[in-house]
Design a protein around this nucleic acid. Structure first.
Lengths: 104, 104
DNA sequence: ACAGATGTTCGATGATCGTCGTACAATTAG
DNA sequence: CTAATTGTACGACGATCATCGAACATCTGT
């Protein structure tokens, strides 16, 4: 049983925007952008339980924001930056280039 | 009773992304970007009832994506492009599919 | 074989969402 | 004044969402 990942051409803007519209998921994406090394889900400091975490990673994966590779008992997570940049140029940079709070 | 509009500094990324993650609202924003002339809500061809329409315009306004000015019995709607560009550079262009600079 | 680590699955719960219809309010045109 | 236009308010409805806990599965190390 492999994990569903939408192909690059099938990425949907509304789905991507929805995936990014949650604080926890936005945080995951930000962390991933800072250190592009694929890392297991557990290495993210979210203030939620494991099952909630699983949910958020699945939403991100099914929207095509992240890729997850099963390795042993863990899943290495990475940003699908190239696919997103190709399909929605500038979107990821705009989302990531934004400080969490307004900086004047 | 005036309409709530978040100030530029108070625009929240998650709220904006959420507002843009609905097909109807995305459509409103696209139409607004094509013709920047402020227009009443009723001039948009959405396949929903008036009350649903009211709801979508409110979500967009409260997220800071659009501005609504009461004029007579109607409300002139416009994109808050400058505020959005200042606060989240490149986001609106990316969502609208408009490159920030000419393609290479 | 056993224990630990990593993550999933399965309800469940309360909140929010998109949608509708009806009724209402306010302005404008005859 | 009356009627039409423009939009809101108020429930209400099913759907989806974010979250949790408990149980389970799978791999790894000893």
């Amino acid at each position: 049983m492999s994990l569903y990942h939408p192909s690059r051409e099938n990425l949907e803007l509304a789905a991507v925007l929805h995936a990014l519209s949650d604080p926890q998921r936005l945080r995951i994406v930000r962390e991933l952008s800072l250190d592009p090394t694929p890392r297991p889900c557990g290495s993210f400091e979210l203030g939620v339980t494991k099952s909630t975490s699983t949910h958020h990673f699945r939403v991100l994966r099914e929207a095509g924001v992240i890729a997850q590779l099963e390795v042993g008992t863990s899943k290495l997570t990475s940003l699908r930056r190239e696919d997103l940049d190709e399909r929605f140029p500038g979107l990821l940079d705009a989302v990531l280039g934004t400080p969490v709070v307004a900086a004047v």
